[in-house]
Design a protein around this nucleic acid. Structure first.
Lengths: 241, 241
DNA sequence: CGGTTCGTTGAATGATCTCAAGTACTGTGG
DNA sequence: CCACAGTACTTGAGATCATTCAACGAACCG
C-alpha cells in the first residue's frame, strides 16, 4: 500500500505525457489546455518499489501515465506462475487493459519512487463525443496499442533468447529516445532482472547467460542497473527492424 | 486475386455479425438497422483459398467481418519467416490492426470459399460522434481485442507445446459455441496444420506429435479437418481457465 | 497413374530449463 | 570499520523439450 499520497500541481503539463498530447486536440490555447488538464487529470505519488497501484478485481475507472520512474503490470496465473505483461516508462500510458470492463484484470506495481497522473476514462469518453479530432487520436492510440502487443507477441514467440533480449534492450532505448529526444549513453533498467526475465519468458539464469554472452561479443555493455548498446547494426540485424 | 466479386444482399443481417451488434445501438428499430447496415456495410466474395483480401501496404479504410468460412492474417518477416498472427471465423471482426495508420501492416488471406462484410472505418467514426452508446461499444471492443491479444501472448510465451495446442483447440471451440449457441460434436479446423503450427509458434512436426499424443491419451480425437475435445476437465486443467 | 501437397514418424541435434552452488552487492548491528 | 544476513545475480552440469533433417504415408488432381 502507498505510504502516503500527495498531489502534484500542474504536473500534467509535462511535455511528453500522452494525456497532454490527447487533450491538446480539444484545447483552444495553452490556458484552456491547463484548465482541461486540471479538470481531467489528477497526479499522485510517491509509490515505493513494490507498492500496488491497482490490483486484479479493483474497479476500473481511469487510465494512467507514468510521471516519474516506472511501473510494471503482472498477473498471477491460476497455476501459480507470475507473468509480467509490461513495463511503462515516464510519459507512457498504462491501465488500458481493462477498457470495457468493470474490474482490473492485471496488477500494476511501482518499480521505485513512482509518481502517476490519472485520468478517469469517462471524461475521455465525453470529450470524444464533442471532438472528432480527439476521437481520432484515441482510436489511433488503440491501434498503436494493438500493434505494439501484436509485435511483442511475434517477437517473443518466434525469436530465441538472444534476439528477444536484443529486441527488449533496443525497444527500451527507443522509448527513452522518444521521450527525451536524445539517447543518454547508459539506458537505465528500472526493473529487476527477474522481472525482465519473466517478461521475456526466460529464466533469470538464461537471461544472465545471454547478457553475458552479448557483452562478450561486444554488442552491448552491462552496468549495474543500466546498459549500453555498442553495435546497433548487429541489434537491427538480429531483431529484424 | 479474387476470381470474381459479387454482392450479397442483406447479408449484414446475419445474426452473430459484430457489425449488427454495433449498429443495433444506433438503430431505432429493425428497418432502421437495415437501412444503416445497407449504408455502412458492403458484402463481397467469394475469395478462394489463398486469395489475398488485403496485403501489407494496401490503404487501410475498413474493418471486416467474416460471413462464410474463415480468414487468416500473416506477415512476412524481414528474415524471411512467415508468421501467422490470427484466424477469424464466421461472425468475427478483423482488419483492426491498422487503425490509426494509412496502410495495412498485415496480409489477410482467405482459407477457403470465403465471403466478407466490409465497413469503412470513417463511417463508424462519424456514427460514434452522435452515439455515446456506440462509442462505448467500440471502446469496449478495442478493450476486448487488447485483452485477447494479451492473453494469447501469455499463453503462447509461457506454456509448452501441449498446453498451447489445448488452448488453441478449446479457444476455437468456444468461439464456435459463441456464434452458434451450441457445440457441434466435431469442430472444424479451417486452416492447414502448417498455419496452425506457425500460429502456435511450433513446427508442423511438433504439432503433429502433440496432436497424436493428445489423442493417444484420450483428451481429444483428431479427424480429417476437424477435432473433438473428449476430456474437457483435462483441457481446463491444462490451460488454466 | 505419377506428381504434388499435406501430414506423420524417427533419430540426432540444439536451445532452454532445472537444480545446485557460488559470487556480489546492500543494509544492519556491533 | 567489520561481520553478518539477505537479496540479486551469475555460473555450471545434467535433464527436458522442441527443432532439424530425413524418410515415409496419405490424399488430391491432373
Amino acid at each position: 500500500m502507498p505510504a502516503k499520497v500527495l498531489y502534484l500541481k500542474r504536473s500534467h503539463i509535462c511535455p511528453h505525457c500522452v494525456f497532454r498530447k490527447l487533450l491538446s486536440s480539444v484545447a483552444r490555447d495553452y490556458d484552456h489546455l491547463s484548465a482541461i488538464a486540471d479538470d481531467v487529470t489528477r497526479c499522485h505519488g510517491p509509490y515505493q518499489a513494490g507498492d500496488h497501484i491497482y490490483r486484479v478485481g479493483d474497479p476500473f475507472r481511469s487510465l494512467m501515465v507514468v510521471q516519474q520512474r516506472a511501473v510494471k503490470t503482472e498477473i498471477l496465473s491460476r497455476d501459480g506462475s507470475l507473468d509480467v505483461t509490461g513495463f511503462y516508462l515516464v510519459g507512457e500510458l498504462f491501465g488500458y487493459e481493462s477498457i470495457g470492463q468493470q474490474q482490473r484484470c492485471l496488477d500494476a506495481v511501482a518499480l521505485s519512487d513512482t509518481w502517476l497522473c490519472e485520468a478517469p476514462f469517462y471524461k475521455f469518453e465525453s470529450l470524444c463525443l464533442d471532438s472528432p479530432a480527439l476521437q481520432a487520436q484515441v482510436f489511433s492510440l488503440f491501434g498503436d496499442i494493438i500493434r505494439r502487443e501484436s509485435h511483442e507477441l511475434r517477437v517473443i514467440r518466434n525469436k530465441r533468447a538472444e534476439q528477444r533480449v536484443l529486441w527488449f534492450l533496443n525497444d527500451l532505448q527507443q522509448r527513452v529516445i522518444a521521450r527525451r529526444g536524445d539517447a543518454p549513453r547508459k539506458i537505465p533498467l528500472p526493473m529487476l532482472k527477474d522481472d525482465m526475465a519473466r517478461y521475456l519468458s526466460l529464466t533469470p539464469e538464461t537471461l544472465s547467460r545471454v547478457l553475458t554472452g552479448l557483452q562478450r561479443n561486444g554488442l552491448i555493455r552491462n552496468h549495474f542497473k543500466s546498459f549500453e548498446i555498442l553495435d546497433m547494426d548487429a541489434v537491427h540485424a538480429a531483431t529484424g527492424d
